[in-house]
Computed example of a mutant assay.
Amino acid sequence: MNFFRKLLFPLAVLYGFVTSVRNFLYDKGILKSYSFDLPVIAVGNLSVGGTGKTPQIEYLIRLLSDRYKVATLSRGYKRKSKGFVLADAGADAAVLGDEPFQFHQKFPNIQVAVDANRVNGITQLLSQNEKPDVILLDDAFQHRKVKAGFYIMLTAYGDLYCDDLILPAGNLRESRTGVKRADVIIVTKCPPQLTLIQQNEIRSRLQLKQHQQLFFTFIAYEESVSSEEKSMPVKEIATVDKILLAGIAKPDSFFAYLQAAQDATMTFPDHHDFTQLDIEKIKEKAKNKIIITTEKDYVRLKGKLRKEQLFYLPIKTSFLSHQEDFDKSILDYVGTSTGNR
């Protein structure tokens, strides 16, 4: 903890007290939570940003969408619209937010909705002629008004919640005791070579409850970058002069995967809304070089830079082991909940 954050520790105590009281009121039923008559899976984290929620949601979409009618519901962070919005052919990142728009583009056969009021969002989805069989709540671990049937909590390998403090002294949105709501805990962004001994050391530090399952995943980068028009193997562009651009919480691994000695990088805040001035700066730095960005940034930059110049690097979440156990837990929950409706 740096010196500045040490000074903020009294505020962290106050913030922790407020969030603990809120959770207590929900746990005791004094504040009302709403349940729904379909399987609802909430994916989130205790900390702010950078745990890999988007690729985890995409993993669940791939797992479930061949069997069930899937809907995702997000807040739609930094979108310019208000209220409930269900993605259609005219939707874009400004209307939905970058991550929901990414879902909409990659998975056109699912329903993608945004609403800061998750209770209203689910109610609206269930009022559609084409009702979903299962709803995935994005970044909803602290959204206690909805009582999901299954909770997946993510924690990044390099920033485990057990080593962190509450905001603003640390990055936790609530006390570490909030982890008790999780059915599954996933340690994300692990080194692919993480050993079983190292995994067991982390398991010991996390002190899981008896009912909780623990999994370890890593970010798998595709072997090609893609544009609106074509794909190029990463090996082929290794020696090509390029600009690497990222507006995500923790871009180091993205840069490390692609960067050669001659490559320049540009970093922007997470969920950055690229202004015309930003675009001009990018163009000035890139000249005629290709620009490679993240999937999330690509949906906000598309149409603002030349399509033959702008590429993105697709990613997926991959399990170090026991993927079939994770899949079975999800499919069993959804299948049982759907069958009992």
Rank of each mutant, 00 (worst) to 15 (best):
D263Q: 10
A220Y: 03
A94M: 14
A148Q: 03
I135T: 09
F216M: 08
D252Y: 01
D159T: 03
G97C: 00
N117S: 11
L136D: 05
A238H: 15
S47F: 02
G29M: 04
I135A: 04
L167W: 12
I110G: 00
I152L: 08
T195F: 06
A238F: 10
P100Q: 10
K53E: 12
R341Y: 01
F24W: 13
P233K: 10
A42Q: 03
T177R: 13
V234K: 09
K289F: 02
I197L: 14
E228D: 11
F150I: 01
I290P: 07
Q199L: 06
V134Q: 06
G16L: 01
G52S: 02
F254E: 02
F150G: 00
I202N: 00
D92L: 08
T51C: 04
N129T: 13
Q199F: 02
R176C: 09
R306N: 13
R181S: 04
I315V: 09
F101I: 07
L258K: 09
V187D: 00
G16N: 05
S224C: 14
R203L: 03
E236P: 01
G170R: 07
I61R: 06
Y312E: 05
F268D: 07
L73I: 10
S227E: 08
L194D: 00
K145A: 15
A182N: 00
Y298C: 08
D241H: 12
V119I: 14
V179K: 12
Y34H: 15
V70M: 05
L125I: 10
P191K: 12
E228L: 14
L7G: 11
A260Y: 03
I282Q: 03
G50E: 03
K283V: 06
L310S: 02
G158T: 13
I243Y: 03
V48P: 07
E58R: 10
A12E: 06
L38C: 02
A89M: 13
F268S: 03
C190E: 03
Q142W: 10
N23P: 00
M266Q: 07
A94E: 15
D138P: 06
K316F: 11
T188E: 05
K304A: 13
P168N: 08
Y312W: 09
K307D: 14
R306G: 10
Q105T: 12
G303Y: 09
S20T: 08
G303H: 07
V40M: 02
V234F: 10
D263N: 15
Y312H: 11
K316P: 00
S253K: 13
L136Q: 08
T72D: 10
I61Q: 06
D88K: 05
K285Q: 15
I219Q: 09
F218K: 07
D297I: 02
C162M: 09
R306T: 05
Q212D: 04
D27A: 10
K296E: 08
Q212F: 08
A286N: 06
G339F: 14
A261S: 15
K283R: 15
R341H: 11
Q323D: 13
V13M: 13
S224K: 15
L196M: 13
E99W: 04
R176E: 09
L14E: 01
L14M: 12
F84Q: 11
I30S: 01
M153G: 05
I186D: 08
L206Y: 04
T338L: 14
A87W: 07
S226N: 13
F103T: 04
G178W: 01
V70C: 05
R75T: 01
G178R: 01
V13R: 15
K28P: 06
R176A: 14
E228M: 11
R22T: 07
I290L: 12
